[in-house]
Structures are given as C-alpha cells and as structure tokens.
Simulated scan of single mutants.
Amino acid sequence: MAQLTQDQITEGLARLDGWEQEREGSAIRRTVEMPDFMSGIHLVTSIAHAAEEAGHHPDIDIRYNRITFHQTTHSSGGLTEADMELAARIDELVSDALARS
C-alpha cells in the first residue's frame, strides 16, 4: 500500500474531526473524552469491530475516560489511505457514541 504524500495527509486531516499528525509524521492521532469509563470501553469495542471488518487496526490508549487513537500502516512505515478511511470511520463511531451519552 502506497504511503500518502504530505499534501494528501494535509487534505485528509482537513476532512477528519480532531485528528492531528504526530511529530514524526508517520502517524495521526485523536483523543476523545467520554463521559465515563464504561462508555469509553463501549466505544473501543465498536471501533475494534470496525477495525476487524476493515482489516486495519489502530493503536488504542485508554486512560479512564480518555481514549487516544493512533493510526499508521506499520507494514508501509507511514500513513496510507487505509489510515484515513479508518480514521473517518472512527469519527462516525465517536459521534454516534457521544450522541447516545
């Protein structure tokens, strides 16, 4: 899978909600604050199912009700279109989870 150019990354981030490029440039991340621990765990579970369907998986850091998602394509050593697609799906699931909270 081909790595994205910096222009493609910038364009992709403009379409996403709250994602930023990490300093090294090879990953993007978003942190979400949920109302409580269990709502965060439910969100992570829904994202895990979406990631399995996509065959592409984020790195997830859970700190009580704060969840940080890191997206990169390890096999290519950088960001690919699959990262932007999964980040957009994560945005949808976060929005749905927050609306239910």
Rank of each mutant, 00 (worst) to 15 (best):
D61T: 10
A99R: 11
G55P: 03
D17V: 08
A48T: 02
I41H: 03
E81P: 05
I62V: 08
W19C: 02
M1C: 12
V44Y: 00
W19G: 06
Q3N: 13
E53L: 04
T5M: 04
R89S: 10
A87I: 01
Q3G: 13
S95M: 06
E53D: 13
H49I: 10
R100L: 12
T5C: 09
A27S: 13
A48I: 00
F69S: 01
P58H: 01
H56Y: 03
T73C: 06
R15H: 15
F37V: 01
V44Q: 00
R100K: 15
A82I: 07
I41S: 05
R23F: 06
A50H: 03
S101T: 10
G78T: 03
E20Y: 10
Q6H: 11
V32S: 07
M1F: 13
Q71K: 00
R30P: 03
I28W: 06
E53T: 07
R15F: 04
F69G: 00
Q21H: 04
L4A: 05
D83F: 08
G77Y: 07
F69R: 00
A54K: 05
H57G: 06
L4E: 09
M84Q: 09
M38L: 15
H56A: 07
D61Q: 14
L79A: 11
L43I: 08
I41W: 04
A87L: 02
Y64F: 12
Y64N: 05
D83G: 11
Q6G: 03
A82Y: 12
H49E: 13
A50L: 03
R15S: 15
A14C: 05
M34S: 09
P35H: 05
G78C: 08
A97Q: 14
H70R: 11
M38C: 07
E92C: 09
G12Y: 08
E92G: 11
I47N: 06
W19T: 02
P58C: 02
E92S: 15
I62N: 00
S101M: 09
L13F: 08
A48K: 02
S46P: 01
I47G: 08
D83M: 06
E52W: 00
G25C: 02
L4G: 05
R100F: 06
E81M: 12
T5L: 04
G12D: 07
L13D: 07
E33G: 12
E24I: 02
Q71S: 09
S26C: 05
G55K: 02
E53A: 11
T68N: 01
D61L: 12
R100E: 13
L4Y: 07
M84N: 10
R63H: 10
I62H: 00
T80E: 12
R29K: 14
A48M: 02
L86M: 15
A27Q: 12
E53Y: 00
G40W: 07
T72W: 13
D96L: 14
M1P: 15
D61E: 13
E20L: 03
Y64Q: 04
E52M: 04
L98F: 07
I41R: 01
M1D: 10
I90Y: 12
G18Y: 04
I60Q: 00
A54L: 00
S75K: 13
A82S: 15
A2G: 11
E52C: 02
L79D: 06
S76M: 14
Q6S: 14
R15E: 14
M84S: 07
